[in-house]
C-alpha cells in the first residue's frame, strides 16, 4: 500500500493541532496546578496560561509565537504493508511546509551559515526519529519543540561513583540554575545510561508521555515523584516569578551504561507541552491519538 499521500495529510493535521490545541494531560496538569497554587503572582501567571491556550484552541491560533523546530517521531510496524517507505520523509517535509503557511507557524529553521529558510525545512529539518516496532501500523507523532526550553536542555557525563542520588542532585541543581528561563511550569525529561547521545534522546522521548504518567518501574516512579517535589520546593514558580508550581512532572527512563560512564540527559519542556499523534492501519484508517480531528 502507498502511505505517503495519507502521511502528508495526517502530518499536516498533526502539526496544526499540536501548535494550536494542548493535549488533555497537559491541560489537566495546568488546571490542577492553578487549583492548588497559593501564591497570588503564580496564580495570575497560571490563569494567563490557561486563558491563553483556551483562546488559542477556540480560534485555532498557535498557543505560543514560538511554534518550535519541527520534529516527527515515526514508528513503522514490522508487519506494516508499506510500499513507499522512501517517500515518507518528503511527505513529512511537505506537511511542515504547508503547516508553516496555513496555520501559520513561525519560520524557525535557520541555516547556521546563512539565513532563515522561511518554511521550517532545511538540512536535517524537520528531524525525523525512525523506529521499527512490532505490529502492522504506522505511527506518527508531530512534536514542535520551542527554543526557550530547549536552551535549558543538557547532557552531563557524571562519574558513576555519584550514584542515583548524585543524578538526582544534578537534575535539581540544573533546574534551579534554569530558574524562569524555560517558561515554567515545565515537564522535565530525564534519562541516564547509554552514551551522551542515547541519554538525551531517551530524555527527550520521555516528553512524549502523557504529562504526569509515572514510569512503570516503581523505583523509577518514586525518583520521578521525589524530583518533582524537590523542584517545586525551590519556589521558582511559573515564569520564575515565585510560587509552588515550577514543574508539572518529571519523566525518567534509563539504558544500561558503560562501566566507566554515567551519562545524564535532561530535556526540558515549557508549559506548552505540544504534540499530536496518529496511527495509520493497513486498511488506511487513521486514528488520532491526542486530538479529536475530523477529516
Amino acid at each position: 500500500m502507498e502511505y505517503a499521500p495519507i502521511v502528508e495529510k495526517v502530518a499536516f493535521n498533526l502539526m496544526k493541532y499540536a501548535a494550536t490545541v494542548l493535549p488533555d494531560s497537559a491541560v489537566k496538569a495546568l488546571k490542577d496546578a492553578y487549583k492548588y497554587e497559593s501564591n497570588s503572582v503564580a496564580k495570575s501567571q497560571l490563569e494567563a496560561i490557561i486563558k491563553n491556550f483556551e483562546t488559542g484552541a477556540k480560534f485555532c491560533i498557535p498557543m505560543c509565537q514560538d511554534t518550535g523546530i519541527h520534529i516527527y517521531y515515526v514508528e513503522v510496524g514490522a508487519d506494516c504493508p508499506i510500499d513507499d517507505l522512501g517517500k515518507i520523509k518528503d511527505a513529512l517535509i511537505n506537511a511542515s511546509r504547508r503547516a508553516t503557511k496555513e496555520v501559520p507557524m513561525r519560520p524557525n529553521a535557520v541555516d547556521p551559515f546563512g539565513s532563515n529558510s522561511g518554511d521550517n525545512t532545511g538540512r536535517f529539518i524537520p528531524w525525523i526519529n525512525w523506529e521499527v516496532v512490532p505490529g502492522d501500523k504506522l505511527k506518527i507523532v508531530a512534536f514542535p519543540k520551542g527554543g526557550g526550553s530547549e536552551n535549558m536542555s543538557t547532557v552531563k557525563m557524571l562519574k558513576p561513583g555519584v550514584g542515583i542520588k548524585g543524578v538526582m542532585k544534578e537534575v535539581l541543581d540544573w533546574m534551579i540554575h534554569a530558574a524562569g528561563q524555560p517558561c515554567p511550569p515545565t515537564v522535565v525529561g530525564v534519562a541516564i545510561g547509554g552514551g551522551a547521545d542515547i541519554a538525551i534522546k531517551l530524555a527527550k522521548k520521555q516528553l512524549m508521555r502523557p504529562v504526569g504518567q509515572p514510569h512503570p518501574d516503581k523505583n523509577i516512579a518514586e525518583i520521578e515523584r521525589k524530583l518533582k517535589e524537590a523542584i517545586n520546593t525551590t519556589g521558582i514558580g511559573p515564569m520564575g516569578l515565585g510560587g509552588n508550581t515550577t514543574c508539572l512532572a518529571v519523566h525518567m527512563d534509563y539504558a544500561y551504561r558503560h562501566p566507566a560512564s554515567l551519562p545524564l540527559g535532561i530535556a526540558v519542556q515549557c508549559w506548552a507541552a505540544r504534540q499530536s499523534g496518529a496511527e495509520i492501519a493497513p486498511d488506511g484508517k487513521v486514528t488520532y491519538l491526542h486530538h479529536n480531528i475530523k477529516e
Partner: peptide, 23 residues
C-alpha cells in the same frame, strides 16, 4: 526586583529541596 527576590528565596529553599531527595 522581583526576580532577584525570588532567586534569594530559592537559595534559602535549596537545603529543604535537597532533603527531599536525600542529599
Amino acid at each position: 526586583n522581583l526576580f532577584k527576590e525570588v532567586s534569594q528565596k530559592v537559595e534559602s529553599n535549596r537545603k529543604k529541596a535537597y532533603e527531599i531527595i536525600g542529599v
